[in-house]
Design a binder for these strands. Structure first.
Ligand SMILES: NC(=O)c1ccc[n+]([C@@H]2O[C@H](COP(=O)([O-])OP(=O)(O)OC[C@H]3O[C@@H](n4cnc5c(N)ncnc54)[C@H](O)[C@@H]3O)[C@@H](O)[C@H]2O)c1
Ligand SMILES: NC(=O)c1ccc[n+]([C@@H]2O[C@H](COP(=O)([O-])OP(=O)(O)OC[C@H]3O[C@@H](n4cnc5c(N)ncnc54)[C@H](O)[C@@H]3O)[C@@H](O)[C@H]2O)c1
Lengths: 221, 221
DNA sequence: TCAAATATGTGAAATGCTTCACAAGAAAAT
DNA sequence: ATTTTCTTGTGAAGCATTTCACATATTTGA
Protein backbone atom coordinates (compact mmCIF):
# COMPACT_ATOMS: atom_id res chain seq x y z
CA UNK A 1 0.00 0.00 0.00
CA UNK A 2 1.12 3.52 -0.78
CA UNK A 3 0.40 4.79 2.70
CA UNK A 4 2.96 2.33 4.06
CA UNK A 5 5.75 4.09 2.23
CA UNK A 6 4.79 7.67 3.03
CA UNK A 7 7.73 9.44 4.63
CA UNK A 8 7.27 9.18 8.35
CA UNK A 9 6.74 12.61 9.94
CA UNK A 10 9.54 13.16 12.41
CA UNK A 11 8.08 12.96 15.87
CA UNK A 12 9.63 14.94 18.63
CA UNK A 13 9.26 13.98 22.27
CA UNK A 14 7.37 16.13 24.70
CA UNK A 15 10.51 16.42 26.82
CA UNK A 16 12.51 17.82 23.94
CA UNK A 17 9.87 20.48 23.28
CA UNK A 18 9.82 21.46 26.93
CA UNK A 19 13.59 21.71 26.93
CA UNK A 20 13.47 23.97 23.89
CA UNK A 21 11.46 26.35 26.06
CA UNK A 22 14.20 26.18 28.67
CA UNK A 23 16.90 26.83 26.09
CA UNK A 24 14.92 29.75 24.76
CA UNK A 25 14.67 31.30 28.20
CA UNK A 26 18.35 30.69 28.97
CA UNK A 27 19.41 32.18 25.64
CA UNK A 28 17.31 35.28 26.28
CA UNK A 29 19.16 35.76 29.56
CA UNK A 30 22.55 35.11 27.92
CA UNK A 31 21.70 37.67 25.25
CA UNK A 32 20.93 40.29 27.90
CA UNK A 33 24.15 39.41 29.68
CA UNK A 34 26.02 40.15 26.47
CA UNK A 35 27.30 36.71 25.55
CA UNK A 36 27.80 36.16 21.84
CA UNK A 37 28.22 32.40 21.94
CA UNK A 38 27.46 29.59 24.34
CA UNK A 39 28.56 25.96 24.37
CA UNK A 40 26.26 23.01 24.95
CA UNK A 41 28.08 22.69 28.25
CA UNK A 42 27.30 26.26 29.26
CA UNK A 43 23.67 25.95 28.25
CA UNK A 44 23.34 22.60 30.02
CA UNK A 45 24.71 23.98 33.25
CA UNK A 46 22.16 26.80 33.35
CA UNK A 47 19.27 24.38 33.06
CA UNK A 48 20.70 21.43 34.97
CA UNK A 49 20.93 19.17 31.94
CA UNK A 50 23.79 17.37 30.20
CA UNK A 51 25.68 18.84 27.23
CA UNK A 52 24.84 15.74 25.20
CA UNK A 53 21.16 16.30 25.85
CA UNK A 54 21.37 19.86 24.59
CA UNK A 55 23.21 18.84 21.44
CA UNK A 56 20.88 15.95 20.74
CA UNK A 57 17.77 18.09 21.19
CA UNK A 58 19.06 20.75 18.82
CA UNK A 59 20.25 18.16 16.29
CA UNK A 60 16.65 17.12 15.68
CA UNK A 61 16.10 20.47 14.03
CA UNK A 62 19.42 21.15 12.29
CA UNK A 63 22.99 22.07 13.12
CA UNK A 64 23.28 25.50 14.56
CA UNK A 65 26.67 25.43 16.24
CA UNK A 66 30.29 25.86 15.30
CA UNK A 67 32.78 23.22 16.38
CA UNK A 68 35.35 24.56 18.78
CA UNK A 69 33.22 27.62 19.51
CA UNK A 70 29.65 26.79 20.45
CA UNK A 71 26.30 28.25 19.43
CA UNK A 72 25.66 31.89 18.45
CA UNK A 73 23.34 33.12 21.20
CA UNK A 74 21.11 35.47 19.22
CA UNK A 75 20.84 33.23 16.19
CA UNK A 76 20.02 30.16 18.23
CA UNK A 77 17.41 32.00 20.24
CA UNK A 78 15.79 33.15 17.02
CA UNK A 79 15.97 29.69 15.53
CA UNK A 80 14.30 28.15 18.57
CA UNK A 81 11.61 30.80 18.53
CA UNK A 82 10.87 29.76 14.95
CA UNK A 83 10.76 26.10 15.90
CA UNK A 84 8.41 26.78 18.80
CA UNK A 85 6.30 29.10 16.68
CA UNK A 86 6.78 32.01 19.06
CA UNK A 87 8.38 34.25 16.44
CA UNK A 88 4.87 35.62 15.89
CA UNK A 89 1.93 36.45 18.10
CA UNK A 90 -1.04 34.26 18.92
CA UNK A 91 -4.60 35.44 19.50
CA UNK A 92 -5.81 33.89 22.72
CA UNK A 93 -9.20 33.88 24.43
CA UNK A 94 -9.82 33.08 28.07
CA UNK A 95 -13.00 31.52 29.42
CA UNK A 96 -13.83 31.96 33.10
CA UNK A 97 -12.78 35.30 34.55
CA UNK A 98 -12.57 34.13 38.15
CA UNK A 99 -9.64 33.90 40.54
CA UNK A 100 -7.16 32.25 38.26
CA UNK A 101 -8.57 33.74 35.07
CA UNK A 102 -8.12 37.30 36.39
CA UNK A 103 -4.55 36.54 37.41
CA UNK A 104 -3.75 35.28 33.92
CA UNK A 105 -5.26 38.34 32.22
CA UNK A 106 -3.19 40.62 34.43
CA UNK A 107 0.00 38.77 33.64
CA UNK A 108 1.92 40.98 31.25
CA UNK A 109 4.57 38.38 30.41
CA UNK A 110 2.13 36.41 28.28
CA UNK A 111 1.39 39.45 26.15
CA UNK A 112 5.11 40.24 25.87
CA UNK A 113 5.78 36.68 24.80
CA UNK A 114 3.27 37.04 22.02
CA UNK A 115 0.38 35.21 23.64
CA UNK A 116 -2.17 38.01 23.36
CA UNK A 117 -5.27 37.49 25.44
CA UNK A 118 -7.73 39.54 23.40
CA UNK A 119 -11.05 38.07 24.44
CA UNK A 120 -12.68 37.11 27.74
CA UNK A 121 -15.80 35.03 28.32
CA UNK A 122 -17.92 34.31 31.38
CA UNK A 123 -21.49 33.27 32.14
CA UNK A 124 -21.92 35.42 35.23
CA UNK A 125 -24.12 38.44 34.47
CA UNK A 126 -22.18 40.52 36.98
CA UNK A 127 -18.98 39.90 35.07
CA UNK A 128 -20.31 40.15 31.51
CA UNK A 129 -19.69 43.68 30.24
CA UNK A 130 -17.11 44.47 32.91
CA UNK A 131 -13.66 45.57 31.92
CA UNK A 132 -10.46 43.62 32.70
CA UNK A 133 -7.21 45.19 31.57
CA UNK A 134 -9.00 46.88 28.71
CA UNK A 135 -10.97 43.85 27.60
CA UNK A 136 -14.74 43.74 28.01
CA UNK A 137 -16.00 40.35 29.20
CA UNK A 138 -18.30 38.68 26.63
CA UNK A 139 -21.23 36.41 27.28
CA UNK A 140 -20.27 32.76 26.90
CA UNK A 141 -23.41 32.40 24.76
CA UNK A 142 -21.64 34.22 21.94
CA UNK A 143 -18.52 32.08 22.21
CA UNK A 144 -18.60 30.37 18.81
CA UNK A 145 -19.42 33.54 16.92
CA UNK A 146 -16.89 35.76 18.61
CA UNK A 147 -14.05 33.26 18.53
CA UNK A 148 -14.40 33.08 14.78
CA UNK A 149 -14.96 36.81 14.24
CA UNK A 150 -11.87 37.57 16.29
CA UNK A 151 -9.64 34.91 14.71
CA UNK A 152 -8.82 33.29 18.02
CA UNK A 153 -6.30 30.46 17.76
CA UNK A 154 -5.89 29.29 21.35
CA UNK A 155 -8.25 29.21 24.31
CA UNK A 156 -7.44 29.11 28.00
CA UNK A 157 -10.09 27.38 30.11
CA UNK A 158 -10.41 28.59 33.72
CA UNK A 159 -13.95 27.58 34.61
CA UNK A 160 -15.09 25.23 37.40
CA UNK A 161 -14.32 21.56 36.73
CA UNK A 162 -18.02 20.71 36.65
CA UNK A 163 -18.65 22.75 33.50
CA UNK A 164 -15.25 22.48 31.81
CA UNK A 165 -16.30 19.67 29.45
CA UNK A 166 -19.30 21.62 28.16
CA UNK A 167 -17.23 24.72 27.63
CA UNK A 168 -14.54 22.73 25.84
CA UNK A 169 -17.13 21.05 23.61
CA UNK A 170 -18.26 24.49 22.46
CA UNK A 171 -14.69 25.64 21.95
CA UNK A 172 -13.97 22.58 19.83
CA UNK A 173 -17.16 23.10 17.83
CA UNK A 174 -15.97 26.62 17.09
CA UNK A 175 -12.94 25.10 15.37
CA UNK A 176 -10.26 25.90 17.95
CA UNK A 177 -7.31 23.46 17.81
CA UNK A 178 -5.32 24.44 20.91
CA UNK A 179 -6.61 24.54 24.48
CA UNK A 180 -4.89 25.14 27.82
CA UNK A 181 -7.03 23.81 30.65
CA UNK A 182 -6.78 24.69 34.34
CA UNK A 183 -9.72 22.61 35.55
CA UNK A 184 -8.67 19.40 37.31
CA UNK A 185 -10.61 17.08 35.02
CA UNK A 186 -9.74 14.83 32.10
CA UNK A 187 -11.32 16.55 29.12
CA UNK A 188 -12.30 14.67 25.99
CA UNK A 189 -11.32 16.36 22.74
CA UNK A 190 -10.98 15.03 19.17
CA UNK A 191 -7.58 13.78 18.04
CA UNK A 192 -6.87 16.89 16.00
CA UNK A 193 -7.24 19.24 18.97
CA UNK A 194 -4.17 19.88 21.10
CA UNK A 195 -5.01 19.97 24.78
CA UNK A 196 -2.65 20.73 27.64
CA UNK A 197 -3.55 20.60 31.30
CA UNK A 198 -2.17 22.77 34.06
CA UNK A 199 -2.77 20.77 37.20
CA UNK A 200 -1.41 22.40 40.32
CA UNK A 201 -2.79 19.82 42.74
CA UNK A 202 -0.75 17.22 40.95
CA UNK A 203 2.45 19.12 41.70
CA UNK A 204 1.54 19.50 45.36
CA UNK A 205 0.78 15.79 45.48
CA UNK A 206 4.15 15.09 43.92
CA UNK A 207 5.82 17.11 46.68
CA UNK A 208 3.77 15.24 49.26
CA UNK A 209 4.87 11.91 47.81
CA UNK A 210 8.48 13.07 47.73
CA UNK A 211 8.45 14.14 51.38
CA UNK A 212 6.73 10.98 52.59
CA UNK A 213 8.89 8.61 50.57
CA UNK A 214 12.09 10.64 50.54
CA UNK A 215 11.83 10.19 46.83
CA UNK A 216 14.48 10.44 44.20
CA UNK A 217 12.90 9.88 40.81
CA UNK A 218 14.65 7.62 38.31
CA UNK A 219 14.74 10.30 35.70
CA UNK A 220 14.05 13.97 36.14
CA UNK A 221 12.11 15.67 33.41
CA UNK B 1 32.39 -2.24 50.21
CA UNK B 2 29.33 -2.48 52.40
CA UNK B 3 27.57 0.37 50.64
CA UNK B 4 27.62 -1.66 47.45
CA UNK B 5 25.36 -4.26 48.96
CA UNK B 6 22.87 -1.96 50.66
CA UNK B 7 19.35 -2.75 49.48
CA UNK B 8 18.58 -0.41 46.62
CA UNK B 9 15.71 1.94 47.46
CA UNK B 10 12.95 1.34 44.93
CA UNK B 11 12.78 4.32 42.66
CA UNK B 12 9.49 5.28 41.11
CA UNK B 13 9.26 7.30 37.92
CA UNK B 14 7.82 10.77 37.87
CA UNK B 15 5.21 9.62 35.36
CA UNK B 16 3.98 6.90 37.67
CA UNK B 17 3.54 9.37 40.51
CA UNK B 18 1.62 11.74 38.28
CA UNK B 19 -0.60 8.92 37.15
CA UNK B 20 -1.29 8.00 40.77
CA UNK B 21 -2.78 11.49 41.09
CA UNK B 22 -4.96 10.77 38.09
CA UNK B 23 -6.09 7.45 39.52
CA UNK B 24 -6.87 9.12 42.81
CA UNK B 25 -9.04 11.71 41.11
CA UNK B 26 -10.80 9.11 38.97
CA UNK B 27 -11.45 6.90 41.98
CA UNK B 28 -12.94 9.82 43.90
CA UNK B 29 -15.37 10.36 41.04
CA UNK B 30 -16.17 6.65 40.81
CA UNK B 31 -16.82 6.58 44.54
CA UNK B 32 -19.30 9.45 44.21
CA UNK B 33 -20.93 7.69 41.30
CA UNK B 34 -21.49 4.69 43.54
CA UNK B 35 -19.19 2.15 41.91
CA UNK B 36 -17.83 -0.47 44.29
CA UNK B 37 -15.17 -1.89 42.00
CA UNK B 38 -13.36 -0.81 38.86
CA UNK B 39 -11.14 -2.73 36.47
CA UNK B 40 -7.79 -1.54 35.16
CA UNK B 41 -9.61 -1.21 31.85
CA UNK B 42 -12.27 1.05 33.30
CA UNK B 43 -9.75 3.18 35.12
CA UNK B 44 -7.56 3.40 32.03
CA UNK B 45 -10.42 4.55 29.86
CA UNK B 46 -11.25 7.45 32.19
CA UNK B 47 -7.73 8.77 32.04
CA UNK B 48 -6.84 7.82 28.48
CA UNK B 49 -4.20 5.29 29.48
CA UNK B 50 -3.77 1.57 28.86
CA UNK B 51 -4.98 -1.11 31.30
CA UNK B 52 -1.47 -2.56 31.43
CA UNK B 53 -0.12 0.82 32.47
CA UNK B 54 -2.58 1.05 35.34
CA UNK B 55 -1.77 -2.44 36.56
CA UNK B 56 1.97 -1.92 36.28
CA UNK B 57 1.83 1.38 38.16
CA UNK B 58 -0.15 -0.11 41.01
CA UNK B 59 2.02 -3.23 41.10
CA UNK B 60 4.99 -1.12 42.22
CA UNK B 61 3.21 -0.59 45.52
CA UNK B 62 1.45 -3.90 46.10
CA UNK B 63 -1.47 -5.93 44.79
CA UNK B 64 -4.75 -4.30 45.48
CA UNK B 65 -7.09 -5.99 43.03
CA UNK B 66 -9.07 -9.19 42.79
CA UNK B 67 -8.72 -11.31 39.67
CA UNK B 68 -11.94 -11.58 37.76
CA UNK B 69 -13.37 -8.56 39.58
CA UNK B 70 -11.09 -5.55 39.57
CA UNK B 71 -10.10 -3.07 42.27
CA UNK B 72 -12.25 -2.01 45.23
CA UNK B 73 -12.86 1.70 44.59
CA UNK B 74 -12.83 3.04 48.13
CA UNK B 75 -9.95 0.87 49.31
CA UNK B 76 -7.79 1.70 46.33
CA UNK B 77 -8.46 5.41 46.67
CA UNK B 78 -7.44 5.21 50.31
CA UNK B 79 -4.37 3.17 49.48
CA UNK B 80 -3.26 5.68 46.86
CA UNK B 81 -3.84 8.55 49.26
CA UNK B 82 -1.48 6.81 51.67
CA UNK B 83 1.12 6.31 48.96
CA UNK B 84 0.90 9.95 47.91
CA UNK B 85 0.92 11.10 51.51
CA UNK B 86 -2.37 12.96 51.13
CA UNK B 87 -4.13 10.94 53.84
CA UNK B 88 -3.13 13.75 56.17
CA UNK B 89 -2.89 17.50 55.91
CA UNK B 90 0.13 19.61 55.07
CA UNK B 91 0.94 23.03 56.44
CA UNK B 92 1.75 25.29 53.53
CA UNK B 93 3.02 28.86 53.33
CA UNK B 94 2.77 31.12 50.30
CA UNK B 95 5.25 33.87 49.47
CA UNK B 96 4.12 36.67 47.16
CA UNK B 97 0.50 37.68 47.58
CA UNK B 98 0.09 39.17 44.10
CA UNK B 99 -2.08 38.15 41.18
CA UNK B 100 -1.38 34.46 41.18
CA UNK B 101 -0.73 34.24 44.92
CA UNK B 102 -4.15 35.69 45.73
CA UNK B 103 -5.82 33.25 43.34
CA UNK B 104 -4.13 30.33 45.05
CA UNK B 105 -5.14 31.48 48.54
CA UNK B 106 -8.73 31.79 47.43
CA UNK B 107 -8.75 28.31 45.95
CA UNK B 108 -10.71 26.16 48.38
CA UNK B 109 -9.86 22.86 46.72
CA UNK B 110 -6.29 22.97 48.05
CA UNK B 111 -7.58 23.29 51.61
CA UNK B 112 -10.10 20.50 51.03
CA UNK B 113 -7.33 18.30 49.65
CA UNK B 114 -5.36 18.82 52.81
CA UNK B 115 -2.91 21.40 51.51
CA UNK B 116 -3.63 24.06 54.13
CA UNK B 117 -2.25 27.46 53.27
CA UNK B 118 -1.82 28.85 56.76
CA UNK B 119 0.76 31.56 56.26
CA UNK B 120 1.29 34.37 53.74
CA UNK B 121 4.40 36.49 53.17
CA UNK B 122 5.09 39.60 51.14
CA UNK B 123 7.56 42.49 51.17
CA UNK B 124 5.09 45.17 50.13
CA UNK B 125 4.19 47.38 53.11
CA UNK B 126 0.71 47.87 51.69
CA UNK B 127 0.10 44.14 51.78
CA UNK B 128 1.79 43.27 55.06
CA UNK B 129 -0.86 43.17 57.78
CA UNK B 130 -3.73 42.89 55.33
CA UNK B 131 -6.14 40.00 55.55
CA UNK B 132 -6.58 37.36 52.83
CA UNK B 133 -9.19 34.69 53.49
CA UNK B 134 -8.60 35.01 57.19
CA UNK B 135 -4.82 35.02 57.01
CA UNK B 136 -2.83 38.12 57.88
CA UNK B 137 0.09 38.73 55.52
CA UNK B 138 3.45 38.58 57.30
CA UNK B 139 6.58 40.53 56.53
CA UNK B 140 9.05 38.48 54.48
CA UNK B 141 11.69 39.63 56.97
CA UNK B 142 10.27 37.24 59.53
CA UNK B 143 10.16 34.32 57.11
CA UNK B 144 12.64 31.97 58.79
CA UNK B 145 11.24 32.51 62.26
CA UNK B 146 7.61 32.17 61.38
CA UNK B 147 8.06 29.16 59.11
CA UNK B 148 9.60 27.30 61.98
CA UNK B 149 7.19 28.56 64.64
CA UNK B 150 4.27 27.52 62.48
CA UNK B 151 5.65 24.11 61.50
CA UNK B 152 5.39 24.84 57.78
CA UNK B 153 6.30 21.88 55.58
CA UNK B 154 5.81 23.22 52.06
CA UNK B 155 6.18 26.66 50.53
CA UNK B 156 4.60 28.04 47.37
CA UNK B 157 6.67 30.74 45.67
CA UNK B 158 4.72 33.35 43.69
CA UNK B 159 7.12 36.31 43.63
CA UNK B 160 8.63 38.01 40.57
CA UNK B 161 11.28 35.95 38.79
CA UNK B 162 13.95 38.51 39.60
CA UNK B 163 13.76 37.88 43.34
CA UNK B 164 12.70 34.22 43.36
CA UNK B 165 16.21 32.87 43.96
CA UNK B 166 16.74 35.08 47.02
CA UNK B 167 13.39 34.12 48.46
CA UNK B 168 14.09 30.43 47.84
CA UNK B 169 17.51 30.69 49.46
CA UNK B 170 15.83 31.97 52.62
CA UNK B 171 13.19 29.26 52.47
CA UNK B 172 15.88 26.60 52.16
CA UNK B 173 17.85 28.13 55.04
CA UNK B 174 14.71 27.85 57.15
CA UNK B 175 14.83 24.11 56.63
CA UNK B 176 11.90 23.69 54.21
CA UNK B 177 12.28 20.59 52.00
CA UNK B 178 9.43 21.05 49.50
CA UNK B 179 8.85 24.07 47.26
CA UNK B 180 6.36 24.77 44.48
CA UNK B 181 7.61 27.59 42.28
CA UNK B 182 5.59 29.72 39.86
CA UNK B 183 8.38 32.05 38.75
CA UNK B 184 9.74 31.23 35.29
CA UNK B 185 13.32 30.76 36.37
CA UNK B 186 15.57 27.80 37.08
CA UNK B 187 16.08 27.88 40.82
CA UNK B 188 19.09 26.32 42.51
CA UNK B 189 18.32 24.28 45.60
CA UNK B 190 20.33 21.65 47.49
CA UNK B 191 19.83 18.00 46.54
CA UNK B 192 17.72 17.25 49.59
CA UNK B 193 15.12 19.90 48.76
CA UNK B 194 12.27 18.89 46.47
CA UNK B 195 11.44 21.63 43.97
CA UNK B 196 8.63 21.59 41.43
CA UNK B 197 8.02 24.28 38.87
CA UNK B 198 4.70 25.39 37.48
CA UNK B 199 5.53 27.01 34.18
CA UNK B 200 2.52 28.16 32.26
CA UNK B 201 4.46 29.81 29.42
CA UNK B 202 5.96 26.43 28.69
CA UNK B 203 2.53 24.95 28.11
CA UNK B 204 1.51 27.79 25.83
CA UNK B 205 4.75 27.30 23.93
CA UNK B 206 3.99 23.62 23.63
CA UNK B 207 0.63 24.47 22.09
CA UNK B 208 2.31 26.92 19.76
CA UNK B 209 4.79 24.25 18.66
CA UNK B 210 1.96 21.75 18.17
CA UNK B 211 -0.05 24.13 15.99
CA UNK B 212 2.92 25.17 13.88
CA UNK B 213 4.27 21.67 13.39
CA UNK B 214 0.98 19.77 13.51
CA UNK B 215 2.70 17.81 16.17
CA UNK B 216 1.91 14.37 17.45
CA UNK B 217 4.29 13.55 20.27
CA UNK B 218 5.88 10.13 20.36
CA UNK B 219 4.54 9.44 23.77
CA UNK B 220 1.94 11.36 25.69
CA UNK B 221 2.55 11.83 29.37
C1' DT C 1 -20.24 -28.48 40.84
C1' DC C 2 -18.15 -27.26 36.84
C1' DA C 3 -17.29 -24.48 32.72
C1' DA C 4 -16.88 -20.08 30.83
C1' DA C 5 -15.75 -15.48 31.43
C1' DT C 6 -13.23 -11.99 33.52
C1' DA C 7 -9.37 -9.48 35.11
C1' DT C 8 -5.05 -9.27 37.88
C1' DG C 9 -0.02 -9.40 38.37
C1' DT C 10 4.20 -9.86 36.12
C1' DG C 11 8.25 -11.51 33.40
C1' DA C 12 9.72 -10.47 28.81
C1' DA C 13 9.65 -7.86 24.59
C1' DA C 14 9.24 -3.62 22.41
C1' DT C 15 9.76 1.00 22.29
C1' DG C 16 11.55 5.43 23.59
C1' DC C 17 14.89 8.48 25.71
C1' DT C 18 19.41 9.72 27.47
C1' DT C 19 24.18 9.27 27.68
C1' DC C 20 28.50 7.81 25.77
C1' DA C 21 32.27 8.23 22.96
C1' DC C 22 34.56 9.74 19.17
C1' DA C 23 35.41 11.47 14.37
C1' DA C 24 35.57 15.74 12.39
C1' DG C 25 35.56 20.64 12.04
C1' DA C 26 36.91 25.12 13.71
C1' DA C 27 39.38 28.24 16.73
C1' DA C 28 43.29 29.51 19.43
C1' DA C 29 48.01 29.20 20.59
C1' DT C 30 52.69 28.71 19.37
C1' DA D 1 52.00 27.06 9.20
C1' DT D 2 51.34 23.68 12.47
C1' DT D 3 49.93 21.90 16.68
C1' DT D 4 46.91 21.92 20.36
C1' DT D 5 42.58 22.71 22.22
C1' DC D 6 37.92 22.99 22.01
C1' DT D 7 33.32 21.68 20.88
C1' DT D 8 29.90 20.03 17.71
C1' DG D 9 27.05 16.37 15.62
C1' DT D 10 25.81 11.68 15.77
C1' DG D 11 25.75 6.54 15.60
C1' DA D 12 25.61 3.22 19.08
C1' DA D 13 25.15 1.73 23.76
C1' DG D 14 22.79 1.94 27.93
C1' DC D 15 18.95 2.64 30.51
C1' DA D 16 13.92 3.61 31.52
C1' DT D 17 9.24 3.07 30.45
C1' DT D 18 5.48 1.08 28.20
C1' DT D 19 3.18 -2.63 26.16
C1' DC D 20 2.53 -7.47 25.39
C1' DA D 21 1.04 -11.85 26.56
C1' DC D 22 -0.13 -15.28 29.54
C1' DA D 23 -0.33 -18.04 33.88
C1' DT D 24 -3.17 -17.61 37.59
C1' DA D 25 -6.97 -16.45 40.54
C1' DT D 26 -11.64 -15.30 41.13
C1' DT D 27 -16.33 -14.54 39.83
C1' DT D 28 -20.42 -15.59 37.28
C1' DG D 29 -23.74 -18.45 35.25
C1' DA D 30 -25.59 -22.86 34.10
N1 LIG E 1 -7.81 29.50 41.81
C1 LIG E 1 -6.76 28.69 41.77
O1 LIG E 1 -5.72 28.97 42.33
C2 LIG E 1 -6.83 27.41 41.01
C3 LIG E 1 -5.79 26.51 41.14
C4 LIG E 1 -5.80 25.31 40.43
C5 LIG E 1 -6.88 25.05 39.61
N2 LIG E 1 -7.88 25.91 39.51
C6 LIG E 1 -9.00 25.57 38.63
O2 LIG E 1 -9.25 26.65 37.75
C7 LIG E 1 -10.64 26.76 37.51
C8 LIG E 1 -11.09 28.14 37.93
O3 LIG E 1 -10.81 28.33 39.30
P1 LIG E 1 -11.11 29.71 40.02
O4 LIG E 1 -10.57 29.60 41.37
O5 LIG E 1 -10.65 30.84 39.15
O6 LIG E 1 -12.69 29.65 40.09
P2 LIG E 1 -13.72 30.89 40.10
O7 LIG E 1 -15.01 30.35 40.55
O8 LIG E 1 -13.10 32.03 40.79
O9 LIG E 1 -13.83 31.28 38.56
C9 LIG E 1 -14.55 30.54 37.64
C10 LIG E 1 -15.17 31.50 36.64
O10 LIG E 1 -15.81 30.76 35.62
C11 LIG E 1 -17.09 31.35 35.37
N3 LIG E 1 -17.98 30.34 34.82
C12 LIG E 1 -18.68 29.38 35.48
N4 LIG E 1 -19.37 28.64 34.62
C13 LIG E 1 -19.12 29.13 33.40
C14 LIG E 1 -19.56 28.78 32.09
N5 LIG E 1 -20.38 27.76 31.89
N6 LIG E 1 -19.09 29.50 31.07
C15 LIG E 1 -18.27 30.53 31.28
N7 LIG E 1 -17.82 30.91 32.46
C16 LIG E 1 -18.25 30.20 33.52
C17 LIG E 1 -17.52 31.89 36.71
O11 LIG E 1 -18.50 32.91 36.54
C18 LIG E 1 -16.22 32.41 37.27
O12 LIG E 1 -15.99 33.74 36.87
C19 LIG E 1 -11.30 25.67 38.31
O13 LIG E 1 -11.53 24.57 37.49
C20 LIG E 1 -10.29 25.36 39.36
O14 LIG E 1 -10.40 24.03 39.79
C21 LIG E 1 -7.88 27.10 40.19
N1 LIG F 1 -0.06 36.12 37.13
C1 LIG F 1 0.04 35.04 36.38
O1 LIG F 1 -0.95 34.64 35.76
C2 LIG F 1 1.30 34.28 36.28
C3 LIG F 1 1.39 33.26 35.34
C4 LIG F 1 2.57 32.53 35.25
C5 LIG F 1 3.63 32.82 36.07
N2 LIG F 1 3.53 33.82 36.96
C6 LIG F 1 4.68 34.09 37.81
O2 LIG F 1 4.27 34.13 39.16
C7 LIG F 1 5.02 35.10 39.87
C8 LIG F 1 4.05 36.10 40.46
O3 LIG F 1 3.29 36.70 39.44
P1 LIG F 1 2.16 37.73 39.75
O4 LIG F 1 1.48 38.05 38.47
O5 LIG F 1 1.33 37.26 40.86
O6 LIG F 1 3.02 39.00 40.19
P2 LIG F 1 2.62 40.16 41.19
O7 LIG F 1 3.57 41.26 40.98
O8 LIG F 1 1.17 40.42 41.09
O9 LIG F 1 2.87 39.51 42.61
C9 LIG F 1 4.15 39.34 43.16
C10 LIG F 1 4.05 39.56 44.66
O10 LIG F 1 5.31 39.27 45.24
C11 LIG F 1 5.60 40.29 46.17
N3 LIG F 1 7.08 40.37 46.33
C12 LIG F 1 7.97 40.98 45.53
N4 LIG F 1 9.21 40.80 46.01
C13 LIG F 1 9.09 40.09 47.14
C14 LIG F 1 10.01 39.60 48.09
N5 LIG F 1 11.34 39.80 47.95
N6 LIG F 1 9.55 38.89 49.12
C15 LIG F 1 8.24 38.66 49.27
N7 LIG F 1 7.31 39.10 48.40
C16 LIG F 1 7.73 39.81 47.35
C17 LIG F 1 5.01 41.54 45.60
O11 LIG F 1 4.80 42.50 46.61
C18 LIG F 1 3.70 40.99 45.03
O12 LIG F 1 2.69 41.00 45.99
C19 LIG F 1 5.95 35.74 38.87
O13 LIG F 1 7.20 35.10 38.95
C20 LIG F 1 5.30 35.43 37.55
O14 LIG F 1 6.25 35.35 36.52
C21 LIG F 1 2.39 34.55 37.08
Amino acid sequence: MASDSLPEKKRISESTIHRLSLYYRALSVLEKEGFETVSSKGLAKREKLTPAQVRKDLSFFGSFGTRGLGYPVVELREKISQILGIDRSWRVALVGVGNIGSALVSYKEFQKQGFKIVKLFDNDQRKIGSNHKGIVVSDIKNLANELELDNIEMVVVAVPATVAQYVVDDIVKAGIKAILNFAPVNLKVPDDVFLRNENMSMELEYLSFALVNDHIPKRVR
